[in-house]
Nucleic acid binder design. Structure first.
Lengths: 343, 343
DNA sequence: CTGTTAGCGCCTTCAG
DNA sequence: CTGAAGGCGCTAACAG
């Protein structure tokens, strides 16, 4: 009834548990006859090693955890997809833990990972990562993706949000747009703050007055913000949204209101989620290569884990910066409607 | 240096490990003074219980696995999002295992879950689930979502693909469309087969000749299939694609070719992924309520796990059927362009 | 090459 | 109420 253990196998094969372990793990030499006897018993008993028990004695779980604030929207989906690919390539299982709105919740999630994973990727844009990181530095390999500037000195990856935002605004200005409004992300979000800062910086540098309305990274919030804008009589000739989903919301709000894009208003997003290329007009945005970033992050974590068990490994404490690339599409009025990106 | 164990805590608190365990798990009465001593030690040593070790002795991991073929596209993202919500609500961790193209790979993934999870949700539309299910029935609580008809008798959830497809075709026919072409999914995919069967059935019933072109559930394949169709001089007045992403690909291919939708051709998809409401023209499709389905599946798995450890629990072996609902949008030429779905 | 034995870190009877 | 001891299933020395 109960699943067979290594002992059952040993008994049936008339060998010791050590031998069974040897043929199953591949470590240690075993004579052919015993190997066959073991395999026969394994087959007969439909034996499958208990990875939990194995973990306890090897102190390796071959599992990594990903802590993230949310699972909503294409950004996180893409990121996880990239991580999943790399995890598989590195022989690692992936356990995702999301919906951590506040710091204490995230901390609890991280704590509950102990004994469950060999390493962690932490995305926690809502709080300062230093605090969190402190609590587990040295204890566990961790790769930070907090969008905060305070990740320097620890293994981390950040997006150059300021640079991306500046590029967006400069592009709009270069096209002759004058009244550029920014739809910001959630106030507590570090990435959102940086994108907003970049916007303000570029506007100020150009001698323009920044105008900011609040959003929440959701399509609905972009839609609402735009509607509110129009209701107030504000008539921007360009929108720079802090992410693509809000930009899409803005796009649709303009359509609802009969404002033409790109003729009357240009719209720029951030991230380049898959949908950005599919809406019409296709969205100009800052490409982050999300899945690739996830893949890269997981590869680095795998390396961190390997180094963790190897005393003479070179410590990787690099803070890698992802530089978003401006992708110009129809929503800015320049690109050809169908520029081969339909796939 | 190394993380503290329960023994370290016991030592520092001058109590036995049993007492530490008692205050930490909440089970078993402890006198207030010892409780405080323990908590003090826990705090001082920054002790965190090792969940792997705990699992070994309790034989509960509080973790569930999700086996799925892929992580690509919004369908699986949404599904996992729903599962994640329910997992959290049930106090369960989620480990995802994807990219299992063939049966042996999926089987290996399932096997490697032993000792790692308390239960499994298996999505394996590429192979007959019975075989897989057999190998673990009784051993582990499993919820099947294989889209196969052979899940009856085991806890499972299936989408009424035939019914959905029939509804799609009938709707198109009712609108006066005559030359309805079906873009099919991957040949090995059970859901794709059923949707195709439904299409054929409805067409035949209406006395029309079915026309089927092959796709692969990706946007690119829908695009290519449509392009090929046009190149051959075929001029359908409606497309029923086996999923939304292929429908979107078709939509864009028609735009490229200057064929107007919905005037010249109607397009219907399947699934109602978020993007379906965002493309223009917005896509008519069959709504599956993906996230909700995932949530429901996880809730059922949680119940299965609970029942698994309770001898006198009523066995749940129901095969729940999800009936997709036709959502009419612009791509069929009926719905108002902006019908309030912009959010 | 093989078997014996001691843990991995924790929970959980069972006496006291 | 508390502590001692056994065991969860497996791996990894260490002898033989």
């Amino acid at each position: 009834m109960k699943p067979a253990t290594i002992r059952d196998v040993a008994e049936r094969a008339q060998v010791s548990v050590a031998s069974v372990s040897r043929v199953l793990t591949g470590a240690g030499a075993v004579t052919e006859p015993t190997r066959l006897k073991v395999l026969e018993a394994v087959e007969a008993l439909a034996y499958v090693p208990h990875s939990g028990a194995r973990s306890l004695s090897t102190s390796r779980t071959d599992t990594v955890g990903v802590i993230l604030p949310d699972l909503f929207g294409e950004f996180f989906s893409e990121l996880i997809r990239g991580m999943d690919v790399a995890a598989r390539a590195n022989g690692l299982h992936l356990i995702v833990s999301s919906s951590h709105d506040d710091a204490s919740e995230a901390a609890a999630a991280i704590r509950s990972m102990r004994g469950r994973v060999d390493g962690l990727i932490v995305l926690s844009p809502h709080l300062d990562s230093a605090h969190l990181a402190q609590s587990l530095v040295g204890r566990l390999p961790v790769l930070l993706m907090n969008g905060g500037a305070n990740d320097a000195g620890r293994p981390s990856m950040v997006v150059d949000n300021v640079g991306g935002a500046v590029a967006a605004v400069e592009h709009l200005l270069a096209q002759g747009r004058e009244r550029i409004v920014h739809i910001g992300g959630p106030s507590g979000n570090l990435e959102a703050r940086e994108r907003q800062a970049g916007y303000v910086q570029a506007m100020t540098a150009a001698g323009r007055e920044p105008t900011i309305v609040a959003g929440a990274f959701t399509q609905a919030s972009g839609h609402d913000a735009t509607k509110a804008l129009l209701a107030e009589g504000v008539r921007p000739d360009a929108i720079f949204a802090a992410n693509d989903m809000m930009a899409v919301g803005a796009l649709l709000a303009f359509q609802d209101a009969g404002v033409r894009c790109p003729e009357d208003v240009a719209v720029v997003g951030f991230d380049d989620v898959p949908i950005a290329a599919l809406v019409r007009p296709a969205l100009t945005t800052l490409r982050v290569e999300i899945a690739e970033t996830g893949r890269r992050a997981m590869d680095r974590l795998a390396a961190l884990i390997a180094a963790f068990n190897d005393p003479e490994a070179a410590p990787d404490a690099a803070c890698e910066t992802i530089r978003p690339q401006l992708v110009v599409r129809q929503s800015c009025g320049r690109a050809h409607p169908f520029n081969g990106e339909t796939q």
